[in-house]
Design a binder for these strands. Sequence first.
DNA 1: TTGTAAGCGTTATCAC
DNA 2: GTGATAACGCTTACAA
Lengths: 337, 337
Amino acid sequence: METVTIKDIAKALNISTSTVSRALRGSYEINAETKRLVMEYAEKVHYSPNPIALSLKENKSRAIGVIVPEIANHFFSQAINSIEEVANSRGYHVVIFQSHESYEREVTNIQHIIARKVDGLLISLSGQTSDVSHLHEIQRKKLPLVLFDRISHKIDAHKVVADNFDGAFKATEHLILSGRKRIAHITSPSLLSITQERLAGYRAALEKHGFQYDESLVKYCGFSAEEPKRIIEELIESQNPDAIFTTSDRLALDCFSALREKNILMPNDVAFIGFTNLKVAHLLEPSLSTVVQPAFEIGQAAAELLLDSIERKTTNIEQFRTIKIPTEMIVRKSSES
Amino acid sequence: METVTIKDIAKALNISTSTVSRALRGSYEINAETKRLVMEYAEKVHYSPNPIALSLKENKSRAIGVIVPEIANHFFSQAINSIEEVANSRGYHVVIFQSHESYEREVTNIQHIIARKVDGLLISLSGQTSDVSHLHEIQRKKLPLVLFDRISHKIDAHKVVADNFDGAFKATEHLILSGRKRIAHITSPSLLSITQERLAGYRAALEKHGFQYDESLVKYCGFSAEEPKRIIEELIESQNPDAIFTTSDRLALDCFSALREKNILMPNDVAFIGFTNLKVAHLLEPSLSTVVQPAFEIGQAAAELLLDSIERKTTNIEQFRTIKIPTEMIVRKSSES
DNA sequence: TTGTAAGCGTTATCAC
DNA sequence: GTGATAACGCTTACAA
């Protein structure tokens, strides 16, 4: 990787490196002619400043770290999409890490991130994360931090989330209003903030309409390939729901698969709604109404919040913000049975 | 972002920075006691070396750049997944860029990448990319480069691809053997290497079985939201295919949608096969046989090739390799009409 | 075994 | 208006 440095330019032009530097960054105290000369030569040899040297000098890397449970998950890849967009437009680069839903790997990632000297960190917690001392460590080091989507209440920091309560409320109410009585809720691990918020929305809707909350209709699923399948089959068999409200593409698909196998028809036998991202959702199953996860908006807001936080000099007496992105419900005609 | 440096340790222990450095990196020419002291203190104050300083010194960043058309695409996010895994396990970080299928943005990304001083680059070309002088520029700078999936024949470099010819051949033959006569092929922009390879496989299978290649059954689609929809509808209407072989999740979904709207049944009226990634594929439509895109394996092989190339000192007289990953065809019973 | 000093590429602070 | 010099954090000849 051959490179042209400021030194090479200085040597070639028989001037000092400081002059070159000044010319390049358009300092005013410089001879117009010298400046032109330098600029021309720099252009000619494709000079580009070494960002690593800059980083060392300024003690910042113009890179932000992003830790997500899994890249190959539509929600997170969409979020990363917008994060990348915002970051790039503001001159930052994005360094990606995956926790693979493992607390340990999340901690390791954090260590890497700290060592890497990124200027800030965006994180969505793993399904196993309960203890957040690794995040406190980040804050102790005064590294700007924004949690998004899967957050923790054990830490005071910037947060960006979907309005999961409202989304779940709307979803559940939709099922109720279309006449369903036994509305199952299949959701993510109970540890996660999104799980709790959605459960609360589900319960609130039930209560509003005079339904009794029935614990046996609620199932938490991990991220393995088999567990959801098993749990869902069990639920369908033993609880006989006439509607299902689920919280991810993955779980929705597993539900469809299970229903298909048992020859249970949607929307006749079972009405369905889910928090999903796939544009495919309604192709998959025309009766699938959806609460769209605002992945793009969450990533965008999180990245902007982080960059603002990085660039604000007076980072000390900073108020932590929590941004809640509204969700949109898309109701398919065919589910209005 | 407060930090402990080697200097702080030296000062605290009243020794020189070089001694600290030597102790830390376990140099042999050092007193065991001094070493212990340094190690202990470093541990205590959570010392971690500044990778930026290292980078500057060694002129390498231990980061690799990845340019993909779109992160929020299952194929690429899966590929990034394995790239991240390989890179991390070998002590590298992954910096992500998206071209958004735009040649211009690809060029800009390359400039960023070069400026960023990554140690190597993985790239999958945009749908608009024909000219590859930006890649030649990369090579001129002796920056290790691996093209994956969407490659170009205009450049001699390491490449990792799926066996698209074979996959397309198998897919087409499968449709032929199940009795189909008018097999449409809906595919990506004709510029792309994958498009050409798959088209060749499709043609070869037709020829083997004595079918005449019919241009009007082959349609190229861009990546906009509307174009594929329009093209597909037109094709179905005017050409009356009894089978469709398509080359991406996106296109498969658009086909399903179009067929549904026209009340054309699968697999009775139309048999279907596609290059897809979604595990969902067969849930979507039980008749969908699939040639699985080996995204994970491609990413893995590409990352390994790149890192080997980076770490091999004698990068000069290096043979360029092309790795072809086999594809697997998954045939659903119900498509054997 | 340890310390001194130079150097990686850049900019800021002094002189001149 | 320009040039020398120090500094960012670290490693490594070279001296001691």
